[in-house]
Design a protein around this nucleic acid. Structure first.
Lengths: 221, 221
DNA sequence: AAGGCATGTTACTTGAGAGTAGGATGAGGC
DNA sequence: GCCTCATCCTACTCTCAAGTAACATGCCTT
């Protein structure tokens, strides 16, 4: 992320080249991700992607090896965003309860973004077993963090005893689903949806006369 | 659903022919649904489906018009199962709370079955706009019932005040997600998963000292 | 100014798989 | 026994989109 205005030295220049190339590669991936999310992987041809970028198909091949690599990278980036979101939050002096909510907020936000949405909307069937393995291990990492957070919450007494495995799946499922039906131009903002969804997951649908008011789930972070 | 043992009359015989034909058609659809769920729509060729049925591709075309019709029918059947599940439960003297839980149980069960899983796993991008419209209207019908049930629950005082729209989406999302990762041969039974998932959705992840013990969510129905 | 490399283009090959034409087989009715 | 219709097969066509070959353009260095 260096300043690209100052391009005196040839090294700097070549670095500019590199970053520009990288930027274009990302543009290919992001444009593809959007197309995949709108029309699905198989209904998106490389010509479609090229057209959106105002280039021709072979140009795409200058930045990626093949169509599969595009999908793989889109999903990988999405998963890495989710994984990093946990890392940003976890272990920073917060209670498990607070951290869990913070992670959920980020999770919900990411699945409404281009790459994050790819993780949810586009399946991984088109990928090779090798690629799937890599992505699976990333998913496991995310899931593990969720579970640990829930386990910690149970130990700390702010989360009800439950099977952390199923709880993690349920939470991730409900949040992921947002990425499936969310429309950027719809009436509801991603933020509001996430807030209410998280509220429901934490407090449940059933009416319970809560005696402890110390946890503020509905804060507008 | 007549008894097909007694085949004396020619009408009965011809009816047997009809039902046999219908049974084969359903076999095509069910086999296709399984293949779609395992490998995805586009990675499943009609030759694949034919092979699983021990027939050849043109035989498939004797029972369905084209590949799109197969997908459409699979999803339609799945959605109709979900819709009927609500009808079976709603309005039979139960409280909104009880009915909601009963619907959730059925919902979770159906998304682990062949056609129900199709609704969740296979997208609708390959379908024509016409087909999508039909399916969308079915989905709306299911969603509407969920919302009404939640609204009723709020009115009856057994469900916490919330936006029924988002609550319905969250619940449906969490339950649908089961169909995405559930493995029939995995360690957990669909029934157990559903029970815990529903428990979490009703009571929430957060620990609340419940004063009312009248609602028994964990009953083993 | 000349050569080389990065970037893109036009025009092609190729394969997979959806869908079809037309014929074989066999059961039931007349 | 013969005709008809349902059922299923072999052998094909045809389209679409992924991927490639080979050439054009222009900046950057020397």
């Amino acid at each position: 992320m260096q300043d690209s205005m100052d391009s005196q030295s040839p090294w700097k220049a070549s670095s500019d080249r590199q970053t520009e190339r990288e930027a274009k590669r990302v543009a290919v991936l992001r444009t593809a991700a959007r197309a995949f999310n709108e029309m699905g992987y198989h209904n998106t041809s490389l010509d479609d992607i090229a057209r959106r970028l105002n280039v021709t198909k072979p140009t795409i091949y200058y930045y990626v090896r093949n169509k599969e690599e595009i999908l793989f990278e889109c999903v990988r980036i999405g998963l890495e965003m989710l994984d990093e979101a946990s890392n940003d939050v976890i272990g920073h002096d917060g209670s498990a309860y607070e951290e869990l909510i913070a992670v959920m907020r980020k999770y919900a936000e990411i699945v409404t973004m281009d790459f994050g949405m790819c993780v949810i909307r586009v399946g991984e069937e088109p990928l090779t077993e090798e690629s799937r393995r890599t992505l699976r291990s990333l998913k496991r990492s995310i899931d593990r963090k969720f579970r640990r957070l829930i386990e910690r919450g149970i130990a700390e007494g702010c989360i009800a005893p439950c099977d952390p495995k199923i709880a993690a799946f349920t939470v991730a499922g409900a949040l992921s689903w947002i990425g499936r039906w969310y429309q950027p131009n719809g009436g509801l903002s991603a933020h509001d949806i996430a807030a209410q969804c998280i509220d429901l997951l934490m407090n449940g649908l059933g009416k319970t006369t809560t005696s402890g008011e110390d946890h503020d789930t509905r804060s507008s972070g």
